[in-house]
Design a protein around this nucleic acid. Structure first.
Length: 504
RNA sequence: GGGCCCGUAGCUCAAUUGGCAGAGCAGCAGACUCUUAAUCUGUUGGUUGGUGGUUCGAUUCCACCCGGGCUCACCA
């Protein structure tokens, strides 16, 4: 009798035996004197003889991670999720009923233990159990203690199991929390105001992506889950919030990969009166700050590379870098002017084996060439700047070059982490850009931007010169925790639903 | 969506050319008063992801389906 069904039955039977002994199976509370982490922290360096003299008392609770039994002497290892602490259990040192409870405990159960803290012969900090309180039953058998749980599907679908068994998983999400807290601290210290803007939007704007569609019944209104907060945050800069930021989810109805989850978290922020050069230095400063705060250092290990967030990051002009790499790859001179000419640029792209669609202008093609030749190589943090206007419908043009916008992306680990630009605040030009997007949309590009009349109207009231940027939190956390897949840094990544299983 | 790979006990993994499906841990029964993956003795546990097919015989070969991983495309 030891398949899963039978093991569950055995565990239920033990719980029923406890009930028969008069033990409450699911008590409501347990007053502990301290957490296990606090007890262990307080006595890490306390010698055994000192503990014998002082006999400190502890009343702790935790999940049982192992039971080692020697007949009359027994050891329980308890965990508060963060730290482990051993309890020493002897029949002759506690009420008979408590030992009856102990005999019916399973790996995974929650218990409370109280007694004095001492060190064993092997110098292990231990609670000498004088009482045991049953707190909750683990009815399902847990994964093995040594190999743990390695099946990534179960780790993603049943994250609670992953967290119980794999300490590394817990550390990833603790680091993630420190990253987010560090960003908030950084932004707040600079006078930014944290805001929340709509997740459900009548027009899904602010990025080029396919949205999720939903519907409000009472208003009988089609809504989109936002693909970006951008247009709402900029409305706020029009309204006079000179420094705003939001850390929240975006939703994009597109492919899933190691770098893409349908819902993902972005920091997006806007600051009045600054341009993209200011954003670049601020980003450098922020990432170094956050890396240090979240991981304790400026370097991290990712996919076999050591990535350093020490400033300054590398800087590459998009067309210049694309032309240079194309020259090297093709063995013939490719110049920046070539990449500004539709026909020449298309010829270069085709020679490189890159796809060029009829609707693609020179700017889109130059961007494709850059990404095709460079993206994989941008392992160390790198700012790519001066994007073609064509691929940047919300960015401001350079005063000296209308085909180029004041925009940058930051790459690290081989993928895009941040995207920022001097915001386009000329309502007439913004209207023209939207109209260009509408043409792409009419030509079948479902990711092209829709017209947003209210946004244009907001610009007509006057938006100050503004710099704005988005930073992908999940991807940043991937780098800082050395996680090769975005699913490793999202607690509950989207998974295909399993038939004949309860849907959570 | 395309290509490649994977799915065996609760967990981690074996199984020769297609020839009785195994181990460790967990579980169960027992021994043991300071263990650290405790040890020792005994022992239960399988619709080999599913449905078909080929075959005397399928975990193994084939088809389809379900789920997952990597990768390409799309994107951040």
């Amino acid at each position: 009798m030891a398949n899963e069904v039978e093991q569950i039955a055995q565990r239920k039977a033990k719980l029923e035996e406890l009930v028969a002994l008069g033990v409450p199976p699911y008590p409501v509370r347990f007053d502990r004197s301290a957490t296990i982490s606090e007890i262990v922290g307080a006595h890490t360096d306390t010698a055994g003889d000192v503990l014998e003299a002082e006999r400190p008392q502890a009343r702790v609770a935790g999940r049982i991670l192992s039971i080692r039994s020697f007949g009359k002497a027994n050891f329980l290892v308890l965990s508060d999720g963060l730290t482990r602490l051993q309890a020493y259990v002897r029949a002759d040192s506690m009420p008979e009923r408590d030992f009856e409870i102990f005999k019916r405990l399973d790996f995974g159960d929650h218990v409370g233990v109280s007694g004095r803290v001492f060190r064993t012969k092997t110098n292990e900090l231990t609670v000498f159990a004088e009482s045991i309180v049953f707190l909750a039953k683990c009815l399902l058998p847990l994964p093995e203690k040594w190999h743990g749980l390695t099946d990534v599907e179960i780790r993603y679908r049943q994250r609670y199991l992953d967290l119980i068994v794999n300490a590394e998983a817990r550390k990833v999400f603790e680091t993630r929390a420190r990253v987010v807290a560090g960003i908030r601290r950084f932004m707040n210290a600079r006078g930014f105001l944290e805001v929340e803007t709509p997740m459900m939007q009548p027009i899904a704007g602010g990025a080029l992506a396919r949205p999720f569609v939903t519907h409000h019944n009472t208003l009988d209104m089609q809504l989109y889950l936002r693909i970006a907060p951008e247009l709402y945050l900029k409305r706020l800069t029009v309204g006079g919030f000179e420094k705003v930021y939001e850390i929240n989810r975006n939703f994009r109805n597109e492919g899933i990969s190691t770098q893409h989850n349908p819902e993902f978290t972005m920091l997006e922020f806007y600051e009045a009166y600054v341009d993209y050069q200011h954003l670049i230095s601020m980003t450098e400063e922020m990432l170094a700050d956050v890396a240090l705060e979240a991981t304790g250092g400026l370097e991290c290990q990712f996919n076999g590379h050591t990535i350093s967030f020490a400033a300054p990051f590398r800087r590459l002009s998009l067309r210049h870098a694309a032309a240079e790499a194309a020259t090297e790859r093709l063995g013939r001179a490719v110049t920046e002017p070539d990449l500004r000419d539709r026909e020449n640029a298309a010829a270069v792209a085709k020679a490189l084996g890159l796809e060029v669609k009829a609707s693609h202008g020179a700017g889109k093609i130059a961007t494709t060439i850059f990404e095709g030749l460079w993206e994989d190589q941008l392992v160390q943090p790198t700012f790519v700047y001066d994007f073609p206007t064509e691929v940047s419908p919300l960015s401001k043009q350079r005063p000296d070059d209308p085909d180029t916008v004041e925009r940058f992306e930051m790459y690290a680990g081989g993928f895009e982490v941040a995207n920022g630009f001097s915001e386009l605040n000329d309502p007439a030009e913004q209207r023209r850009r939207f109209e260009d997007q509408l043409k792409d949309r009419a030509a079948g590009d479902s990711e092209a931007h829709q017209m947003d009349e209210d946004y244009v109207r907001a610009l007509e009231y006057g938006m100050p010169p503004t710099g704005g940027e988005g930073i992908g939190i999940d991807r940043l956390v991937m780098l800082l925790t050395g996680s090769p897949s975005i699913r490793d840094v999202i607690l509950f990544p989207l998974m295909r639903s399993v038939k004949n299983e309860p849907i959570s």
